[in-house]
């Protein structure tokens, strides 16, 4: 067992463990914090796959921005384990159905994986920023530009909404 395998098992353990903690913890704020731990361990997995850019962008976007907003909203709503109403039977049933459907999809995806194709640990260069940039700006320039215009318009939209005095 080399150090990469060890890191893989450690990260997987943290990811799965904190995902379970996120679902089972009563307080929404704790759930958000556990989810942040999940994002960190997934970023660790990206680094093991030599996808440093993906790893750091995952942290900047998800852990650094989106989860801050989640935390912001949860803190403002002041949700507590004591005040949280117990969900009724029908909602619980719908939740189980939706979760089960997702599980089905995931299992069917995992079943189709080609086990012969080994994951490239530490060696692949698909995630390096140079390769990624070349692919984005050569093969996928149009979708890339369209999505960047979308982001820009979202940003300007935020400014305009803020301007409404």
């Amino acid at each position: 067992m080399n150090i990469t395998t060890l890191a893989f098992f450690l990260l997987s353990f943290i990811a799965v463990g904190s995902a379970i903690m996120m679902i089972t913890s009563k307080s929404p704020v704790h759930s958000v914090l556990w989810l942040i731990v999940v994002f960190f361990s997934i970023s660790g997995h990206y680094i093991l796959l030599n996808a440093q850019f993906l790893a750091v962008v995952n942290i900047i976007v998800y852990a650094g921005a989106i989860m801050v907003l989640f935390l912001f909203v949860v803190m403002l709503m002041n949700l507590n384990a004591e005040t949280e109403p117990i969900k009724n039977y029908r909602l619980q049933l719908i939740g189980v159905l939706a979760g089960g459907a997702l599980l089905l999809v995931l299992i069917s995806a995992i079943m189709r994986i080609d086990v012969e194709q080994v994951v490239q640990m530490k060696t692949g260069d698909a995630g390096l920023i140079k390769v990624l940039g070349m692919t984005l700006f050569k093969n996928y320039i149009l979708p890339f530009e369209i999505s960047s215009v979308l982001f820009l318009s979202a940003m300007i939209g935020a400014v305009i909404i803020g301007k409404k005095d």
Partner: peptide, 14 residues
């Protein structure tokens, strides 16, 4: 690391 400045940015956002 070849993403140094992004790392700084990530830590700052945390």
């Amino acid at each position: 690391i070849n993403i140094g400045i992004l790392y700084v940015f990530g830590v700052v956002s945390l």
